[in-house]
């Protein structure tokens, strides 16, 4: 049998992901060290990739000022949820072990460019950054502490939305966090929301869109419904830049697209403008 007749053998695809960092936006390949050295930013298309919560904190808080709070708040399995692939409890415990975080958001007090703040950073590696009861509880507590200590609130979001494994109570975190944010504003404190790639679903439809200013990074995905859901509903192809940071800025829902290297200085400048 000639090689051209062989049909049943699958071509061996080299494990590209094992060798290269691939930009999810423009698909350009580069050595992993290049991606890392460039702070997870694509050198070709300027897509600002995902960071862990700890990486983000290190780039935002002044050195040595971050003091984590509410680490004791973790997930809760109110529904004793299980699906075809197993228990929620097992999955989330594995995520906790893998990430070393107690929930999809890390919260703490810190200084940003010399300005005292309450800083929350979501980690997409923790169950897709989903909004669980623990996440909502940390945010509500952070809002209350921010009010008590007169700290501006800064939250970096990265999330696929509400955590369905926690059912209705995860949905209720959207209302709980939004109500808590309302109180921060009523107390005369600013809330700066940074929507990083990706911020969608129940998180974009609650606290993430409630910033006194909403800022984002180049090429971040931000939206409510998923692209495929929309395409299936309206039976139309959506433009390539649909739900991108640039698209949202054009439509008036984002104050500014800020490059990662300028993010900390931008936040500090805003806090200075507002006398904090």
């Amino acid at each position: 049998m000639g090689w051209f007749e062989r049909k049943d053998e699958k071509p061996k695809i080299p494990p590209a992901k094992a060798l290269w960092a691939i930009c999810p936006k423009c698909y350009s390949h580069m050595e992993k060290s290049v991606w890392k050295a460039n702070n997870a930013i694509c050198p070709k298309c300027n897509y600002h990739g995902r960071l862990t919560a700890r990486e983000r904190i290190a780039q935002t808080a002044d050195a040595g000022t971050f003091a984590e709070v509410f680490r004791e708040v973790s997930y809760s399995d109110h529904l004793a949820f299980h699906d075809a692939t197993g228990d929620y409890k097992t999955k989330v415990e594995a995520t906790i072990a893998k990430t070393g975080e107690s929930e999809s958001i890390v919260m703490g007090t810190c200084k940003i460019g010399g300005h005292a703040a309450m800083l929350g950073v979501m980690d997409f590696a923790f169950m897709g950054g989903s909004l669980g009861t623990g996440t909502g509880e940390k945010i509500a507590r952070a809002c209350e502490q921010a009010i008590a200590e007169r700290r501006p609130l800064v939250i970096f979001s990265a999330s696929g939305g509400a955590r369905m494994h926690e059912g209705i109570l995860s949905l209720m975190q959207m209302a709980k966090t939004s109500a808590a944010i309302a109180r921060v504003k009523e107390a005369g404190l600013p809330f700066i929301s940074v929507l990083t790639d990706p911020t969608t679903g129940g998180v974009s439809a609650s606290y993430a869109m409630l910033g006194d200013i909403n800022i984002t990074e180049p090429r971040a995905l931000i939206g409510f419904a998923g692209r495929r859901v929309i395409e299936n509903t309206i039976h139309q192809k959506l433009p390539a830049d649909f739900q991108s940071a640039e698209y949202l800025e054009k439509h008036g829902f984002i104050d500014r697209i800020v490059e990662r290297k300028d993010m900390k200085a931008f936040i500090a400048k805003m806090l200075a403008f507002w006398h904090f």
């Binding site: 931000i222 409510f224 419904a225 929309i230 509903t233 649909f242 739900q243 439509h251 008036g252 829902f253």
Partner: peptide, 12 residues
């Protein structure tokens, strides 16, 4: 879940 809905800020 529609195009205009997203453009007019469904999440917001």
């Amino acid at each position: 879940p529609g195009r205009e809905a997203e453009e007019r800020g469904q999440a917001e």
